[in-house]
Structures are given as C-alpha cells and as structure tokens.
C-alpha cells in the first residue's frame, strides 16, 4: 500500500528520479514515433534493383527458389537484404530509418544493417520462445526458480539431524557440483532416452515442428535445475546457518514446531542474506546457458558464434556484449531492490 502511495506521490520524488523518468518517457515517445513512420517490408522491397525484381518474378512459379529475402524490423530501424548463395552470389541490403531507405552495401549503412540483423537474430525476433535472448531468459529464470525451490529442501536435508537424509542431500550436492554441467546436460539429453526408452521430442505433439526444440529445452531445463539446485543448496545452507541460534531457541520456547520455525522465522530472515550470492549464481547461469549449443538450441552466444563462423565478422560480438550487459544490469537492479525491500527491518 505505502509503496503505491509513494509511487503516485510524484511531488515528493527526488529531482534525479524525475529527470530520469522524463528522459525515459522522451526516449519512448521518440522511439514510438520513429517506429510508426518506419517502412514496412513491402515499402522497402520497392528499393530492390531491377535484377532482384526480375529474379523474384522468375522464382514465383518455381519450386526450388534461390533468393533469400531477409526483413528484420527492430522498431525504429529495419533491415532488408536479398541474397543468393553459390558461385555467383548476389547480395543487396538496405536499411530503413525515419521513413527512408538507405543502401547498406558499404560504410556506416552496412555496419548499421549488420548490427540490426545480428541484434534481430540474437533477440530471436520472428522466432518462438526457444531462440536467442528469449531462450536465455526463460531457461535461466525457470531453472533458477525450480532450482532454488529444490535447494531449500536440499539445504534443510543437509543440516537435518537425520544422518541418512543429511548424507543423501550431501551426496546430491557433491555429485552435481563435482561434475561439469555440460556432461550432466549430455546425460539428460542423450543417455536418459536410451536408459528409459523414450525420445524428448516424443513428449510433445508429433505434428508440432518445434517439438524437437521443446524436447531439448525440457532436457536442458531439467539438467540446469538439478545443477543449480546443488549450488543454491550451499547458498541456502550457509544463509540458514548464519542466523543467530537464539532465533531458533526463542521459537522453540514459544512452542513452535520445526516446520513453523523454518517457514516463518529462519528462512524469511535468511533469504535476505541469500540475495547477493543468488544474484551471482543467476548471472553465472545466464552465461552457462550457452552450453545448450551442445543439444542444438541457439542462445545468444551460440547465435553470435555461428554468425561469426559463417560471415567471419567479428563485430557480431558487439551486440552480444550489449545484450548480455543489459540483462545483467536489469537483474542486478532487480536483486538490489529486492534486497533493499527485504532489509527494511534492519
């Protein structure tokens, strides 16, 4: 309640927050206007050379087409290219900006065009959730959430007085921290189907062309969740054990059960202490996701590497770096806010 009141009470905002919001809104407005007046695919197609237009006409009827038309719309800027492969490859590219089309075969326009194209591909735009940034974000967020949830039980098991349970949880952590994530991923994706006689793709609709990606994603999600659970378990355990013993005694003296004590007293207090290492784990995870290259999924790193090998353009790493930095910045900001909110009582 008080949060919303503070948020809507604009008169009492700090000057810097006001300035930031004004700048942000101005940027949004500018971006929307530029996006609105930007050219559509059809409008940009008109700039094509006669040669290209002729090929398009010729290929209309043919079953085997050779011309690839790429149209990437990034809001304010768009990119269009025509290309054929083979010995006599043709290549033409254009950048659309502010309602005009620019030839992008050389110079700054070429650079802009490439950046738009690379960014577009890394963002996985025009593709479903299992490509590029979307894949990275979904895989990290989901496996962190599942892994963290599992890790609470693992940590409690590890510090439990039940020796068997404690040893079991300890063994789990030991196994998943002691073996490389890539190999765990291989085992889940390649070996499980052989042991249990199923296919990952078979778990999804056979008519769905994306089933192979979904299957690989599910395998990756399982491997990543299990792995991150082990790492988080140590974070959770350390945080729980850092809580003053007196808290436990006070709860016990009040007649609270072990479960009640953990749920309402110990874990809520320890969560704040987990935030910095969890944020760290999250950021590491974002980069670890690139291991999905091994099971034919394409995340940001995999896409940029593949662009680099096929086009030999090392500038591809620029947008990749920027995208990673933005994600990490947002994440650090969010975790910082959460930490601040949770430490309200201190």
């Amino acid at each position: 309640m008080s949060f919303w009141r503070k948020l809507t009470d604009i008169r009492n905002w700090k000057t810097s927050s006001k300035a930031a919001v004004i700048l942000f809104m101005a940027a949004v407005v500018l971006f929307s206007v530029l996006s609105f007046i930007n050219l559509s695919r059809e409008e940009m197609m008109e700039s094509a050379s006669d040669q290209i237009k002729q090929i398009i006409e010729e290929e209309k009827e043919s079953t085997r087409k050779y011309l690839t038309i790429t149209y990437n719309d990034l809001g304010a800027v768009s990119y269009l290219s025509f290309s054929t492969s083979g010995a006599k490859a043709i290549r033409e590219s254009y950048v659309g900006f502010a309602g005009r089309t620019y030839n992008a075969d050389m110079g700054l326009a070429k650079f802009t065009g490439q950046m738009v194209n690379y960014t577009y591909r890394m963002l996985g735009k025009g593709e479903n959730m299992l490509h590029g940034v979307k894949l990275t974000l979904m895989l990290t967020t989901l496996s962190m959430a599942i892994g963290f949830f599992l890790s609470i039980f693992l940590a409690l098991g590890k510090i439990s007085s039940n020796t068997i349970l404690s040893k079991l949880c300890g063994a789990y952590v030991f196994f998943f921290r002691g073996t490389p994530l890539l190999i765990q991923l291989f085992v889940v994706y390649f070996s499980f189907p052989i042991f249990f006689n199923f296919s990952w793709r078979g778990l999804f609709s056979s008519t769905d062309p994306e089933a192979v990606y979904k299957g690989a994603f599910l395998a990756a999600l399982i491997a990543f969740s299990l792995n991150t659970a082990a790492y988080c378990a140590e974070i959770v355990r350390a945080a729980i054990q850092s809580i003053d013993k007196g808290q436990n005694e006070a709860a016990k003296a009040l007649g609270m059960t072990y479960g009640q004590t953990m749920r309402t007293i110990i874990i809520p207090q320890s969560i704040r202490r987990m935030i910095p290492p969890l944020c760290n784990e999250f950021v590491m995870m974002i980069k670890d996701v690139s291991l999905v290259f091994a099971i034919s999924l394409m995340d940001i790193t995999t896409i940029s590497k593949s662009i680099m090998t096929s086009e030999g353009n090392y500038l591809v790493f620029l947008p990749a770096l920027v995208i990673y930095l933005i994600i990490t910045a947002v994440l650090t900001f969010v975790f910082g806010k959460i930490e601040k909110r949770l430490s309200i009582y201190e």
Binding site: E59, T63, P193, R201, E210, F293, A294, S296
Partner: peptide
C-alpha cells in the same frame, strides 16, 4: 538456403558435432 528462400519448411537441429546428429536420429529426436 532451402528454408530461408521459402522453398520448403522444415525444423533444423543444427549441431556442433556430426555424431550428435546421428545420436538424435537414433533417439528419435529428429
């Protein structure tokens, strides 16, 4: 090339190693 020109539509699983392709075939992923 076949896919980007719109000649056919198929789902491509692009792998680092050729062995992965054959394992995927054996496992029924592709």
């Amino acid at each position: 090339d076949y896919v980007s020109t719109g000649t056919i539509e198929c789902t491509i699983s692009a792998n680092e190693k050729v062995t992965t392709c054959f394992t995927q075939l054996t496992n029924g992923e592709i």
